[in-house]
């Protein structure tokens, strides 16, 4: 499988990374180089093999569904690029 320019633009859109039109061809070449190399996995027989999802070979631990933290709005907002009171700001979404 090899990426065409339209697919490069589509995945950049999905990833919310702005890509200048002049960079599409370069990215296409780099990404196809990587994808061509990982294509070698298609030669491995994986019939009947269960996928391994995590590094820990254990069931994830559950905890009680209880509040463990809170009332630290200033700490949470301390790195906000822009804020109004206890709110983050974004460009106007609703007209």
């Amino acid at each position: 499988m090899s990426l065409d320019p339209a697919t490069v633009r589509r995945i950049a859109k999905l990833a919310r990374i702005g890509v200048a039109e002049g960079d599409v061809a370069r990215l296409q070449g780099e990404l196809n180089g990587i994808l061509g190399w990982i294509e070698q996995l298609s030669e491995v027989n994986v019939d009947g093999v269960e996928p391994l999802t995590g590094g820990a070979q254990i069931a994830l631990r559950l905890r009680a569904d209880a509040v463990t933290d809170g009332h630290i709005a200033d700490a949470v907002l301390s790195n906000a690029p822009d804020r109004v009171g206890d709110f983050y700001t974004v460009p106007k979404v609703v007209e």
Binding site: L3, L14, V44, V49
Partner: peptide, 27 residues
């Protein structure tokens, strides 16, 4: 580059061919 590769291998239509297969090879 890595975000774009990751987005592609998780995207509809390619998930099984890339990501699921890689998880099986990991096993």
């Amino acid at each position: 580059r890595r975000i774009l590769i990751g987005t592609y291998v998780l995207s509809a239509g390619y998930y099984d061919a890339y990501y699921l297969r890689a998880q099986k090879v990991r096993t």
